[in-house]
Design a protein around this nucleic acid. Structure first.
Lengths: 347, 347
DNA sequence: TTGAAAGCGCTAACAC
DNA sequence: GTGTTAGCGCTTTCAA
């Protein structure tokens, strides 16, 4: 049957010889309707392939059943994966996810915050952007707080002085997983490349990196901690150039993310240094970038499924007005592929 | 000022001493309001940071100002890029884009189609999935037609017998760009790897590939056309194994997409065959995968900006009831990086 | 220019 | 069980 334009419950009601309310009752299912009428109504609904107008329903219920997600850049597989997992989980509960990309533009973060509010989304998830900043922008915090006052806001980073719910990757544990592995392979000259010092997650990783080196009785060499411009492959490439300038190359490299690692591998390949025979590389994120390099990358995976689950559950609970932990952590595990090898004892 | 819960134009109207209608007029801007009142109203709106409820507006205007996009998998950078460009263009016109991922599940394609309709999106864009099929599924066509009867549907593939608007990549021209380049480098033994024969775009590429070989007076060798299982890197890897089994390896490889190329490069690296010195590789899509390999990939770029523009313009025009061409084509150009080289004359 | 009022399509409280 | 009715918050005739 053809979908007729602007069919409403009134049309259905008329044809079924019942009131619109009764149609609404079978639609929502939260009130009893006689079997006879119910079947008649359902038949008509099916016949016309009728779908209730979500806008009207949302207006009436003051609840849109959509969750907004503000993301830095959906092309980045890390964000894409988080989005996808959130979508899966949200749709299990009848929610739709609506994404917007800020592309690192602070103005857009504000604009989309407003837009989401206008759309009366039931919750806002913010992944990447100023929530990653080491020191939170106070104007942004104010803005978010205004919104969070009305709509629950879940962030994957932090926002000092805000009312958001946080679901964070346990960066410390993630770094531990990496270091334990690398060190178990016999490496002692370990570099940490990429990332910026104004990004919280990077700062956390670096601090844990130093801590762990000390714990293992290895000297921290500051020249082995290389700042990256961005989080892309070219930055990884550049980081490697800085390492090449040192008199002693590390035997293992920890890259802040898969992109950085890929750039580093390109730099190594160009120099004719083989991975993992001469230098081992590990990285964070375990996106498909890790599958696409030669050799494939050993990378830390964040359990994206759980990540999405926790984010969405936090949102849903908050929507329902339930108690939600202010901060939850996600644990990681290492996915071992071909980019690391035991340290060659022949020094 | 704090966003107050459930502030409406009535609240604004009361405080301004005007009628809700007048507030609405300054909100929409499509009716004259005295300067005095206008300023007063605007001040109050600003004071409370009031944002009109998009659901109510949508209900009233029978128009949601959101465009739905159904995509196969947003983690795939090709789709992500298309989405992003569409979002940019849509937001220029005050529209929001709402994505859903079908993950290759035909049921989900139907479900999301319904969902979009329920949300009363103003148009639906469908990228990837059954619109890529060589032979269109008739049930799906029926379903889409039912929807397209009410909401304009734009697809990037094809759907035989449907009322959709199409914005397609000119696969023929894309292949031409690649072949011209490869042949200009002196290659004659050229393989085409990856892709499935039930996918329209792949079929188109293959047919053009053969045509062009003939045009250049080169013999078509069927064993150089290698079917892939999927469009991912492992499939590319597997394709290469089939080529390795031949007595004569090609000197150039055209991969159906960047993923496939990356997998092929891994296979080559493993065999110690160097790219581009011994074998050249080109691919399609020019996603960031092409930047992440070593060497970087020479790849066909589809002008994503124009792609997004045309898709969204088609949607907007159709929404306005304007005439829209049933099919539009996107031209490509080659982005030359490091994966191709002149054929070494020493055979 | 402005206000009153109807309508967008649905839900839910209330009455029968 | 079922119908009536009053919203939900906005836009837009229609009068004034």
């Amino acid at each position: 049957m053809a979908v007729k334009k602007n069919l409403t419950i009134y049309d259905i009601a008329k044809e079924a010889g019942v009131s619109p309310a009764t149609v609404s009752r079978v639609l929502t299912g939260n009130a009893r309707v006689s079997k006879l009428k119910k079947e008649r109504i359902e038949a008509i609904i099916k016949k016309y392939d009728f779908k209730p107008n979500a806008l009207a329903r949302g207006l009436s219920e003051t609840k849109s059943n959509v969750i907004g997600m503000i993301v830095a850049d959906i092309r980045n597989p890390f964000y894409a994966t988080v989005f996808l997992e959130c979508e899966k989980e949200a749709s299990r509960y009848g929610y739709t996810l609506m994404v917007c990309n800020t592309l690192g533009d602070p103005d857009l973060e504000n604009i989309y915050l407003e837009k989401m509010y206008e759309q009366r989304v039931d919750a806002i998830i913010n992944v990447g952007g100023r929530v990653d900043d080491l020191v939170s922008n106070t104007d942004f915090v104010d803005h978010v707080n205004r919104i969070a006052n009305v709509i629950p806001v879940i962030i994957t980073g932090k926002l000092d002085g805000s009312d958001c719910y946080r679901v964070n990757i346990d960066q410390m544990q993630a770094m531990e997983v990496v270091m334990d592995y690398i060190i178990s392979l016999g490496h002692k000259d370990i570099a940490l490349i990429g990332g910026r010092d104004n990004v919280q997650s990077t700062v956390d990783k670096r601090s844990r990196y130093k801590q762990l080196l000390k714990r293992y009785g290895i000297n921290v060499r500051n020249e082995y901690i290389v700042e990256g411009k961005r989080y892309d492959d070219d930055s990884g490439y550049e980081c490697m150039q800085k390492l090449f300038a040192l008199e002693q190359l590390p035997t293992a490299i920890i890259a802040i993310n898969d992109f950085t690692a890929a750039g580093a591998m390109r730099a190594l390949t160009e120099r004719g240094i083989s991975v993992p025979e001469e230098i081992s590389i590990v990285s964070f994120d375990n996106t498909f970038i890790a599958e696409v390099t030669s050799p494939k990358l050993t990378s830390v995976s964040y359990n994206y499924e759980k990540f999405g689950e926790k984010i969405v559950h936090a949102a849903l609970s908050a929507i329902r007005g339930e108690d939600v932990p202010r901060i939850q952590l996600i644990q990681s595990e290492l996915v071992i592929r071909g980019s690391c090898a035991k340290l060659n004892k022949v020094d």
